[in-house]
Simulated scan of single mutants.
Amino acid sequence: MTGYNMQRPYTITCPECGVALFPMIAEPAPHFECHIGHRLSPETMMDSQLKRLEVSLSAVMVVMKERAELCRQLEESGLIDRETAIKMAAESDERAREIKKLLELSWMPIPAEL
């Protein structure tokens, strides 16, 4: 992979099952609906996306911390040299700290008029 594509997504996916959502339907009240049949209000969609972000970022942070520990264990077992292990562990720890910062930031509140 040469880079990440930051273009506007073609569609929005259901936070319940991950399949594509139909565009917002206004009848009888504004909502999103997926191919499976999940129906979500705009407020529920926004709340569900924030929860998905937290779960996903938390999982990435855990893997970064595990990678740092793996580097330390590989160094202790003599499979990689100390200098490389220290650099690799520090890199993973720093990335975990950056993700933690993202997790600790607050989000704008969901507008009450949705």
Rank of each mutant, 00 (worst) to 15 (best):
M1K: 08
T2W: 01
G3N: 09
M6H: 12
Q7C: 07
P9M: 07
T13W: 02
T13N: 14
C17N: 06
G18H: 05
G18E: 04
G18L: 03
A20L: 08
A20V: 06
L21K: 04
M24K: 14
M24L: 13
A29M: 12
P30E: 05
H31E: 05
F32H: 10
E33Y: 05
C34Y: 08
H35F: 10
H35R: 12
I36M: 14
H38A: 05
L40Q: 14
E43F: 10
T44K: 13
D47G: 05
S48L: 00
Q49E: 12
L50I: 09
K51V: 05
R52Q: 15
V55A: 08
S56C: 11
S56H: 10
S58N: 10
S58K: 11
A59I: 03
A59E: 06
M61E: 15
M61V: 00
M61L: 06
V62E: 12
V62L: 11
M64G: 06
M64D: 05
K65N: 09
E66T: 03
R67S: 11
A68G: 01
A68C: 04
L70V: 08
R72W: 02
Q73C: 00
E75C: 01
G78E: 01
L79V: 01
D81L: 02
D81G: 06
R82L: 01
I86L: 13
I86N: 01
M88E: 03
A89C: 02
A89H: 04
A89E: 04
S92W: 00
R95N: 11
R97Y: 04
K101Y: 06
L103C: 05
L103E: 12
E104A: 15
L105Q: 15
W107Y: 13
W107S: 14
L114Q: 11
